[in-house]
Design a protein around this nucleic acid. Structure first.
Lengths: 255, 255
DNA sequence: TCAAAAGTGTTATCGGTACACCCATGT
DNA sequence: ACATGGGTGTACCGATAACACTTTTGA
């Protein structure tokens, strides 16, 4: 799954590609996905942002970590291809999936011209453990990845910026959580992503006034203190749609 | 310039492509651009949004209007390709250029699979007249285009939404205007794009408080009334950069 | 009974909106 | 002088932020 350049190479008359042929051949098209999940920090136990990377088993950048991705193949929409990436890497279906950007710089890959259409996704924390620790797939803290293959560092940084930005105005935090969650859990999601503390009182009002979130009559038992009420997200489920004309694919602000 | 599918076809073993071959061949990659400019309305004389379209001279959709675009060729970044589109269609260099979205549905083109990376651009009103009315390039009012080739109607709608959305939080309106402009002119830009009247008093305060706009000591003479002061935009000039890590490529809100 | 989180109430402040008003110029 | 757009002042309203306070549970 980390080996897509073989596909593109197959299209070329000459796999390694001399300069003239490289100039004339159409760019290869690849899909990559930045997958975010929350996992408890090793130290504090508080939730933090993690993402899975795949170790490259061939040149270029052999041995380095890269975003999961692959070629865009027959009979697959862009979104479907990203969804398949996600499934193959984490064993999960995306809770949220949206196009990030198309990266098409001339020298992203040393061997040939590749245009990558990148998606970003949110998956649920508990589920994210499942994939049985394959040797070549590993989870990293999102704010500490470095030394990635290609321009993937830049892509991760941009995806992170986009996630933080979008979190502030769109209802996407829910997709990190299960069906039932407490307001404190939801607040921890925001705090982990935005990396700053939020006032619990104001956060409560803000989120309960927003549409799409409903109190249930269940309570979370087993805590040390007063059992908090459980809530549910009842808004639209963009599980597989964030294209034009649906729920926006965009951000705002200044990074 | 409206004929890019010939390029992609050349890559295929069989131009028309039977089903099996179409399934296996990699998708063609194209760049298209939605180009916005303000022109005086024929009736009211007030500025309105226009965009140039290109008439298709071959099947599919022969005779219908489509976005200017072309194949992504050797030695050209995505941005450069979009910029070239723009130059070839309007004779203009973009004042503002940003990636919109990558459209990759399976059946966008009846003859073969095409993935289009679409950019959107703003150009200056007066300059936009220049290109000597070629037969196959024509300007249309942005809110009245219809019956476009491929999925270009959807693309235009999305670009329009993005423009309106971004106008509300980012400093892009300036790119429709020349170096010096009055606040009334700037307000007319906003009113034309957002399609609603704005309070002149509040607009003034809003825009003068914003960074990047400076009053000059010049005044616009020749009007019927008190000569208004001319302002200049002195913020960053994203003439050719709106990629990740620069000034964002995004929006917000709900269409 | 006490600690700590759940949950409510109160107030100050800020930004946006509406709109009354004065200013400067061509006719 | 007067009509008109340029430009300023001000009052209101809703959203946010800060923080004091009450409630409910486990230990």
């Amino acid at each position: 799954m980390s080996e897509w350049y073989q596909h593109a190479a197959a299209v070329l008359p000459n796999p390694s590609g001399n300069i003239a042929e490289r100039r004339m051949a159409p760019p290869a098209l690849a899909i990559s996905t930045v997958i975010f999940a929350l996992k408890p920090s090793v130290n504090s136990g508080r939730p933090t942002l993690w993402l899975p990377l795949v170790r490259r088993i061939r040149e270029p950048f052999k041995g380095q970590w890269a975003l999961p991705g692959g070629p865009l193949v027959h009979d697959e929409s862009l979104q479907e291809a990203a969804s398949r990436n996600l499934l193959e890497t984490t064993g999960l279906a995306p809770r949220y999936l949206e196009q990030l950007y198309a990266f098409g710089g001339l020298h992203r890959s040393p061997s040939q011209r590749v245009v990558s259409i990148v998606y970003w996704a949110l998956v649920q924390s508990e589920e994210a453990e499942l994939p049985g620790e394959e040797e070549n797939v590993r989870w990293f803290r999102a704010d500490r990845v470095q030394g990635l293959a290609f321009d993937h560092q830049e892509i991760v940084d941009y995806a992170l910026w986009r996630l933080r930005n979008k979190m502030e105005y769109a209802s996407i935090a829910y997709h990190f959580l299960g069906e039932y969650f407490t307001l404190a859990q939801l607040r921890e999601v925001y705090e982990a992503v935005l990396d700053r503390p939020l006032d619990p009182a104001n956060f409560r009002r803000h989120v309960t006034n927003a549409a799409g979130i409903e109190p249930s009559d269940r309570y979370l038992q087993g805590g040390k203190h007063r059992p908090p009420r459980l809530y549910r997200y009842t808004g639209p489920a963009p599980s597989s749609t964030t294209a034009p004309n649906s729920t926006s694919a965009e951000n705002r602000g200044t990074p």
